[in-house]
Design a protein around this nucleic acid. Structure first.
Length: 333
RNA sequence: GUUUCGCAAUAGCUG
């Protein structure tokens, strides 16, 4: 059974329906139907490969169901954006646990329905840190940063221990409204409480300082940070670029290329092009748009076209900009 | 079965 558990986990990750179907028939043949954790894993596989009709059949046939069974199916529907079906299953659960409630909050939030998310959040019999994070994140994701910070203050007031996810969300909210004082306060809070400065928190701090007009503090965090991933570099490159330090941003991009363990990605290229645009580096911008993208296997998205068109048009090269728009292989927006 | 389920940071233009 543990072998199957392992295989099913891999199958869920790869979202391969054929593999799932094979594993399904094998578990049945071997008489593992009574192992509820294997049935749940199978259910999850069908959900991950977006076969909710098959998942539903399996669910209906299952001899026994536990909390994970219900949660897996609710999550499956929520992931597809079918909150109607998710609600239907949810309402059949005798006593949904905190995970299931949180799944509903996230599901509504991902559909952009913050008020429904909030209704479920308020109705929860008990909440843990992930539930609070889900609701705070919901406000951040749906551009209601003030509400996010308001809820974050509730976490503080209730003497509830935030974790690094809570902090990252709150910093993101500060960044989007330029709340430097609150951002600094949070920075102090996480230092005082011995939060480990991992790449996620580091990135959130760099982004917050950059967007609140404190690019020097952002650089300070960046330099002191031990672990950096590509998002960390991206946040710093973008931070420099949007604060008018185009040259420094491009220098940092060179360092990023040289450091080895991070790959420049789509977000990096946006920052690099932005830096060129703000610094007036036209030739360098062309170079990055045409060659850097190829070199690092970065797919050119509409954002990249916007940046390069902006770069050219801003410097009077209207014909070239128009030519690029005409020859775009993707739909211009 | 040290798990089968929930929460996370970085992106352009119009501005």
């Amino acid at each position: 059974p543990s072998t199957f558990q392992f295989l099913l986990k891999a199958s869920a990750k790869s979202k391969s329906l054929t593999q799932t179907t094979q594993l399904h028939s094998k578990t049945t043949k071997l008489g593992f139907d009574s192992h509820i954790f294997l049935q749940n894993a199978l259910l999850n596989c069908y959900c991950m490969s977006r076969q909710l009709n098959v998942a539903r059949l399996l669910f209906d046939e299952m001899a026994q169901r536990d909390a994970v069974t219900f949660n897996t199916l609710v999550h499956g529907y929520a992931e597809l954006g079918d909150m109607f079906a998710a609600s239907q299953i949810f309402s059949q659960i005798p006593a949904p646990n905190v995970i299931c409630w949180t799944t509903m909050v996230v599901g509504f939030s991902d559909r952009g329905d913050v008020s429904a998310a909030r209704r479920f959040f308020d109705a929860m019999p008990d909440r843990d840190v992930a539930s609070w994070n889900a609701m705070i994140s919901s406000y951040v994701q749906n551009q209601q940063p003030m509400q996010a910070l308001h809820l974050f203050r509730h976490v503080q007031a209730a003497n509830f221990k935030p974790n690094s996810v809570t902090i990252a969300c709150a910093l993101s909210a500060c960044a989007s409204i330029g709340a430097l004082d609150t951002g600094k306060w949070i920075h102090g809070f996480l230092s005082k409480n011995d939060f480990r400065l991992d790449p996620v928190l580091g990135t959130a701090l760099i982004d917050m300082y950059s967007k609140c007009g404190g690019v020097e503090w952002a650089l300070d965090v960046f330099r002191k940070l031990h672990e950096k991933n590509s998002s960390t570099w991206n946040a710093m490159i973008n931070g420099l670029a949007m604060n008018g330090h185009g040259k420094q941003a491009l220098d940092l991009f060179d360092k990023m290329k040289g450091c080895g363990n991070v790959r420049p990605d789509e977000v990096t290229l946006v920052g690099v092009l932005l830096a060129c645009s703000h610094g007036g580096f036209i030739e360098e911008g062309r170079k990055h748009f045409y060659f850097t993208a190829k070199e690092y296997n970065i797919s050119l998205l509409v954002q990249h076209y916007t940046c390069v068109v902006d770069l050219l048009a801003r410097h009077g090269l209207l014909n070239e900009a128009e030519e690029i728009i005409r020859n775009m292989p993707i739909q211009p927006d």
